[in-house]
Nucleic acid binder design. Structure first.
Length: 416
RNA sequence: GUGGAUGUAGUUCAAUCGGCAGAGCACCGGAUUGUGGUUCCGGGCGUUGAGGGUUCGAGUCCCUUCAUCCACCCCA
C-alpha cells in the first residue's frame, strides 16, 4: 500500500538540496571561466546510439542499459552516459560548421541498471564537458585543468589525477594483438571472465582481480610500448602542459576507460577514501567517435564526473558548502491591528530582498519570541499596541538582545 | 549477476534465556497573551521493513521477500 522509491534512486531533500545547488552552481561558474557553454539533451535517445558509441561488448550496453519501446515499437534507452548524446547533437545540429571548436558542458541524470552500493546508483547525476574540434594536446590539458579547478574551487584537497594513453585506433589494435599473443599460452589458466575478456577486450585482462590472473600482469606488454610516434608525442606534450599549469599527475598505464570510444589520452580523478567507488571523474580523448556516429572526422576530448561521489568526498573532508536557510527578520505581532500593519511590513521587507517570516499560529507573545529564536533569524521586529499608537517599530537584534525603536516610515531604509 | 552484514518511534539506538516494546535527541503544548536562548512540567498503540511458519507466547527462532550497507563486478 505504501509507495516506495525505486531501488537505486534517491530523493534530494533539504538541507541536502542546498548543497546540490551550490555544487552545480560552482560547476556552471568554472565551466564558464573556460569558455564552455551549456548543452541539454534528452534523457532518452535511440538505443542504437549507445550501442554504437559505447560498444556492443561493453557492460553498459550488455547489461546496464534501461531500454524500452515506445507505442510504435521504436527502441529507446535512458541515457547511461553523456558523451554520445552530445556528439549526436553536435552532428545533427551541424555545430562543426559554425565554429572550429565547440566547448560544451552538461549536467543531469544518467541511468544504469547496476547493483546499488555507496556512491553507485541507478539514477545518478553527472556533470561533464566536451571539447570538440581539435587534437591539440593543449586542450587535453585544458579539460583536465577545468575539472581540477572545479574540485579546488569546492575546497577538495585529496583528489588525485592519473593519466594514461590508450593510443589511437591503430596502436590500440597493435596492442590488443600483442596482449593476445602474450596471454594465449596461459588461456587455460585464466578465470572465465578473463576468457571472455581475451576475445572481446584484451586490455581488460590487465585489471582482473583474481590472483591467478593478476600474476600474469607483471610481464604483460605495456601500452606505452605500442604507442606510435604521434601518439607518444601527443602524450608527452600533454604532460608538458600539465606541468606548465602546475597540475600534479601520476601516470598509470592500467587506466582503461570502460567505453569503447576512447583514444589517446585517458584520465581519472581518484579519491581514495570513498571505498570501492573511488573514481570522482573520468574522461579522455575520443577522436574516432564522431566519424563513427556519422559525422565528419573530428577529434574531441571530454570527461564526466559524478555529483554523488563528489558530495561524499566533500563530506569526508568536512567541507561545509551550504548553510541552512534562516530568516533575516522574524515578525512578532500582537493584536489584530498589528497584523494588518505586519502584512505591509512583510511586503516591504521582501521587496528589499530580505527573507522575512511570520507565524500567525503562535498566539502568545512569548511563543512568537520563542519561534523567532528557534528560526535562527538575525532580527525580530516587534509590533504591538504601543508601537501602533506612536507609529513606530521595535527592531531587536536577537544575538545581542539590543533593541532599537524606529519610526514606521524608516523601515524601508533601515540597515539590516 | 555473486557473496556477506543489517532492518525497532521523525532520528540515533536499547530491549537479558523466546515472556508487559523503551530511552536520548528532535518535534508539539504549557509554566499570568510585552521579550527568546537555560530550566521545569506535559505529550509516544510503533503494521519492530513486508509475508508466512514454529510456539501457550516471537522484535528475538525458521522460511520467503523487499530495502540499505559492504565486497566482487562495473564505472563517474
Amino acid at each position: 500500500m505504501n509507495y516506495k522509491i525505486p531501488r537505486g534512486t534517491f530523493d534530494i531533500l533539504p538541507p541536502q538540496s542546498a548543497k546540490w545547488q551550490y555544487v552545480k552552481q560552482s560547476f556552471h561558474k568554472v565551466a564558464s571561466n573556460y569558455g564552455f557553454e551549456e548543452i541539454s539533451t534528452p534523457i532518452f535517445e535511440m538505443a542504437e546510439l549507445f550501442e554504437r558509441s559505447s560498444g556492443e561488448s561493453s557492460d553498459v550496453v550488455q547489461k546496464e542499459m534501461y531500454r524500452f519501446q515506445d507505442q510504435k515499437g521504436r527502441s529507446f534507452a535512458l541515457r547511461p552516459e553523456g558523451t554520445a548524446p552530445v556528439v549526436r547533437s553536435y552532428i545533427e545540429n551541424h555545430l562543426g560548421m559554425q565554429a572550429a571548436h565547440s566547448r560544451l558542458y552538461y549536467m543531469g541524470p544518467m541511468f544504469r541498471y547496476d547493483r546499488p552500493q555507496a556512491g553507485r546508483y541507478r539514477q545518478f547525476y553527472q556533470y561533464g564537458v566536451e571539447f570538440i574540434g581539435s587534437n591539440h594536446p593543449f586542450y587535453d590539458a585544458e579539460v583536465i585543468a577545468l575539472e581540477m579547478d572545479f574540485l579546488s574551487e569546492l575546497g577538495l584537497k585529496k583528489a588525485r589525477l592519473e593519466i594514461n594513453s590508450v593510443g589511437c585506433s591503430t596502436c590500440a589494435l597493435d596492442y590488443d594483438k600483442a596482449l593476445r599473443e602474450y596471454y594465449k599460452p596461459h588461456l587455460s589458466e585464466l578465470c572465465t571472465d578473463c576468457k571472455t575478456r581475451y576475445e572481446l577486450r584484451p586490455r581488460r585482462l590487465l585489471d582482473c582481480k583474481v590472483p591467478s590472473c593478476k600474476a600474469f600482469r607483471t610481464d604483460a606488454p605495456s601500452q606505452f610500448d605500442y604507442l606510435d610516434a604521434p601518439c607518444r608525442e601527443h602524450f608527452d606534450q600533454l604532460c608538458g602542459y600539465l606541468e606548465l599549469m602546475q597540475i600534479e599527475y601520476t601516470i598509470n598505464p592500467q587506466i582503461v576507460r570502460g567505453l569503447d570510444y576512447y583514444t589517446n589520452t585517458a584520465f581519472e580523478i581518484i579519491y581514495d577514501d570513498l571505498g570501492a567507488q573511488n573514481s570522482l571523474a573520468g574522461g579522455g580523448r575520443y577522436n574516432a567517435l564522431i566519424a563513427q556516429l556519422g559525422g565528419k572526422d573530428t577529434p574531441a576530448i571530454g570527461f564526466a564526473g559524478g555529483f554523488e561521489r563528489l558530495l561524499l568526498a566533500l563530506e569526508k573532508e568536512g567541507i561545509e558548502i551550504a548553510k541552512p536557510l534562516k530568516p533575516d527578520i522574524y515578525l512578532v505581532l500582537m493584536g489584530e491591528i498589528a497584523q494588518t500593519t505586519g502584512m505591509e511590513i512583510l511586503r516591504i521587507l521582501r521587496k528589499r530582498g530580505l527573507y522575512a517570516e511570520y507565524n500567525p499560529e503562535k498566539t502568545s507573545f512569548k511563543a512568537q519570541m520563542k519561534a523567532a529564536d528557534a528560526s535562527g533569524a538575525r532580527y525580530a521586529i516587534l509590533l504591538g499596541e504601543d508601537e501602533i499608537k506612536e507609529n513606530s517599530l521595535l527592531i531587536k537584534d536577537l544575538s545581542s538582545g539590543n533593541q532599537n525603536k524606529i519610526a514606521g516610515k524608516a523601515l524601508a531604509e533601515y540597515p539590516f
